[in-house]
């Protein structure tokens, strides 16, 4: 009976395995093979060993893009978790209009990041954007600066837009975590004289650790492969200042360096694998 059940399970998992093989394993193996060639996207590919990988580490633009991508990912993850947690704490209290507020906070997450980038572009355009005109009406025309014209401010804008868009998703996970905390703990601590801060830092926060782990890891993974919001908001500019590694891969691929771009994609894959492995390890420890 058990053997029959196992066979049925194996049979039922076949479609998923086929899809996984066709859409993940095969492209991955082809990608590894391609990354060892100098293929330009059209002509004959010649095997060049690990040259593309060595070239990457002397490619100033690529290294700058890694820096930009990591700053974006870490900055986004930190802010997303702080803002998401604050939203969740707010939504865990009772107030009038809570349902509407929750929808409003979550709403940006269902809009395409590409569209979101364009919306913010037209909001933030200096001297022409909607926020500029709004500030002008308030007598504060200098409040909106030329933020997308320099590396640091453009990167900050990108992080803020990303946080504004996805804080709602982070909030939902935290809210689920907060709902799962039994009231007995906080009530017992309150009876023992714990202050609100002590309740939060000694009881709530430690019990939210699984939610924090999920949020931090998913935010970092998502942000490391960021592409669309940057393309629509700054196009990686000025120059290549805010170019992410994903955008660099696309540009190299279309710039007659398809083999090299595949090698960079493999490196990005390894970079993303790091938080994934950390997450798996943490989860296993917990188990």
């Amino acid at each position: 009976m058990q053997r029959k059940k196992n066979k049925a399970a194996q049979f039922l998992s076949l479609p998923a395995l086929i899809l996984y093989g066709v859409f993940f394993v095969y492209p991955l193996l082809r990608g590894i093979g391609m990354s060892l060639t100098n293929w330009d996207g059209m002509g004959q590919a010649t095997f060049i060993g690990l040259k593309n990988y060595f070239d990457f580490f002397s490619d100033k633009r690529a290294l700058h893009d890694i820096q930009t991508t990591v700053i974006f990912a870490v900055g986004s993850a930190v802010l997303l978790n702080i803002v998401g947690l604050l939203y969740a704490l707010l939504m865990n209290t009772e107030f009038k209009g809570k349902s509407i507020a929750r929808v409003i906070i979550y709403l940006p997450a269902i809009i395409s990041p590409l569209i979101m980038g364009y919306i913010w572009y037209f909001l933030l355009q200096p001297k022409r954007g909607y926020l500029y005109y709004a500030c002008m009406q308030l007598g504060l025309p200098d409040l909106i600066g030329n933020w997308m014209s320099s590396y640091h401010s453009a990167l900050a804008v990108l992080i803020v837009v990303n946080v504004w868009q996805f804080a709602g998703m982070t909030m939902i996970i935290y809210l689920a975590g907060l709902k799962a905390i039994a009231k007995d703990y906080t009530e017992a601590a309150a009876i023992d004289g714990a202050t609100k801060w002590q309740l939060f830092f000694r009881i709530t926060l430690p019990l939210l650790m699984p939610a924090i782990r999920i949020n931090v890891v998913t935010n970092i993974i998502g942000s490391l492969s960021v592409f669309d919001v940057i393309m629509s908001l700054t196009e990686g500019g000025p120059g290549y200042a805010t170019e992410s590694l994903s955008i660099y891969i696309m540009r190299m691929c279309y710039g007659s360096r398809t083999g090299y771009s595949t090698a960079v994609a493999m490196i990005l894959f390894v970079i993303i694998l790091i938080p994934v492995l950390i997450s798996m390890r943490l989860t296993r420890q917990k188990g």
Partner: peptide, 20 residues
């Protein structure tokens, strides 16, 4: 050159105007 597009040139001008 095939590996240097007009857009690439334009991005260098962006850097120039950004003060890089």
């Amino acid at each position: 050159p095939a590996g240097f597009s007009g857009d690439d040139a334009g991005r260098l001008v962006q850097d120039l105007l950004a003060g890089t």
